[in-house]
Nucleic acid binder design. Structure first.
Length: 289
DNA sequence: CACTTGACCTGTCCGC
DNA sequence: TGCGGACAGGTCAAGT
């Protein structure tokens, strides 16, 4: 579900909400969602406090005072929602919230803090996971070794961006954008949005894309992702931030899930095709092969 | 190696 | 209303 802007929004929220809170208990019953042994949880998590919340690509890292970290991937439908000790729900349920009382049937892991507040890991489809490991070992995990650079870092240049694609010369530009070893954090929404912005057909072969188009794509990708962070991410179905609230970027999308509607640049009807096994939205007039 | 496809899960929507 | 199939914001492990 969440891409870089959504995970970053959650990270910012959690930083405000859980740093310095002390963990009292952890409950989990779906082993794939949290594969650690209970004994490890007791030794390295219970009784310790949260020291930091970081992000790399679409992965969240919650550092614990024991020099362990919770490594969390939300995949398609994962949510991390913090709740203070007692919150009344029901009649006055705000419209920017998607979820009610927690835990609910998609709650996979519950972290209870000493002050009675909770952090819930919800995940309808059970693709996501949480695992606990020594902080120093996090950079050694396979994903961290292979993942590409952060596209929003100030020192990430157009030249670096362009060069990252060389390895995927014979695939489509969309498949390469979605490849986390090329660039970190790009998913289906921001791939479609940035390709529309740069007027590139998603099926264009990497090797056939002119250098000037890479430059445009770099600018558009950073633009859409920065704007999405500003808007608190995109909520199409499941995504919510650390307070359980929706993001509003979906109100600003130019092509994603807009098939049948008209292109804001030229008026042509937006269509949906299939690229790299993913639903893909384009303006057939602005984005030609 | 690079590239594509299916698997992992649950829920929802759409056509018959 | 019920039922089957396609589809959903992401990665992996297998194939070729």
């Amino acid at each position: 579900m969440p891409e870089l802007p959504e995970v970053e929004t959650i990270r910012r929220g959690l930083s405000e909400l859980i740093i310095n809170r002390c963990i009292k208990a952890v409950d989990f019953d779906w082993p794939k969602s949290f594969p650690n042994a209970r004994s490890d949880v007791e030794r390295f998590l219970v009784g310790a406090k949260v020291t930091n919340v970081r992000r790399r690509a679409k992965v969240l890292l919650i550092d614990i005072s024991t020099d362990y970290s919770l490594v969390i991937h939300l995949k398609m439908t994962g949510q991390l929602v913090f709740r203070a000790k007692s919150v009344a729900f029901g009649a006055g349920h705000p419209s920017d919230s998607l979820i009610g009382e927690l835990p609910d049937k998609s709650t996979r892991v519950t972290f209870t803090f000493v002050d009675g507040s909770h952090l819930y890991f919800n995940d309808q489809r059970k693709f996501g996971w949480v695992r606990l490991m020594p902080t120093l070992e996090v950079p050694n995990i396979d994903f961290m070794q292979k993942v590409g650079p952060e596209p929003l870092e100030a020192d990430f240049t157009i030249d670096q961006f362009t060069q990252r694609f060389a390895r995927r010369a014979n695939t489509s530009i969309k498949a390469a954008l979605l490849d986390q070893t090329v660039i970190a954090g790009v998913g289906n929404i921001y791939a479609d949005e940035s390709l529309w912005g740069a007027k590139i057909h998603p099926l264009t072969k990497v090797v056939d894309l002119p250098v000037a188009k890479y430059s445009l794509l770099y600018t558009e990708l950073r633009y859409v992702m920065n704007l999405a962070i500003e808007k608190g991410g995109s909520t199409d179905r499941n995504y919510v931030n650390a307070k359980g609230k929706k993001g509003s970027y979906i109100d600003f999308v130019r092509v994603f899930r807009r098939e049948g509607q008209s292109c804001s640049r030229c008026g042509t009807e937006i269509i949906k095709i299939r690229v790299a096994g993913r639903g893909t939205h384009i303006c057939p007039h602005c984005q030609k092969l």
